[in-house]
Design a protein around this nucleic acid. Sequence first.
DNA 1: CCGGATGTTCACCT
DNA 2: GAGGTGAACATCCG
Length: 259
Amino acid sequence: MPELIEVELSRRLADRLTGRRIDTVNLLDAHASRVDQGSFDAALAGATFAEPGRRGKLLLLETGAATLGIHFGMTGRLVVDGRPALERLVYSPQAFEPRWLRFALMLQDGGTVELHDPRRLARVSLDPDLSALGPDAASVTLPELRGILRARSSGIALKARLLDQSRLAGVGNLIVDEVLWRTGLSPERPATLLDDDEVRRLHRHLRRTIDTLLERGGSHTGELMAARVRGGLCPRDGHPLTRSVVGGRTTYWCGEHQR
DNA sequence: CCGGATGTTCACCT
DNA sequence: GAGGTGAACATCCG
């Protein structure tokens, strides 16, 4: 579950873990972590969950001992007590095949915490380094965003800067295209060259878009989503969308109203 | 059959 | 150092 939206929905599901105690840890796929089974046992067995947190796309399952970090990659999904945080995830298979179970916790009350991930892009970690991540996009302030955009660089594209998790955490490829479309800014604009009004508009649309997509229940629920196909037309003005690669990611945008 | 897909990391260029 | 590109991960879908 890729972007901040899906991770936040997972965090909310994880609220039900608070106060419950871990019995055993099972790293079913060693590929899913740089930490080995023994270290997970030592850090988590017997630990009690506190309130879960999130920074960008990283879910933080806090315990009185260590913090279990889960990054879902593109197709990872959290399942707690048999309930999936997301019924459906775009670009991920619908089913929960047993072979896609990568990591699991058994709780002392019989409950379970599972990470399912067909593509093996998800990662679990212990006490993840939060200093490697910028402020969370759902709560970034206007001055912070201004600083993020104006930080010295050699003219990096606006979209690439917004996707840089070390500067701003949580924005992924769908959210960024939606936000830029709503703001009316070209993804190719040099990040450092936005004027004050444009930064303010971008900040407002970033926050508002995240709120809206959260209410709707997914990063794929934006206005632009249906038009993100070859030959797609701008939902606002009917202009053919441009398909290009910006910041290494496929990008759809309207050359008519996004300047 | 082929190309891509909400992501990150790493090697390799420029 | 800053960026850009392409590969890798594994599976599904059009």
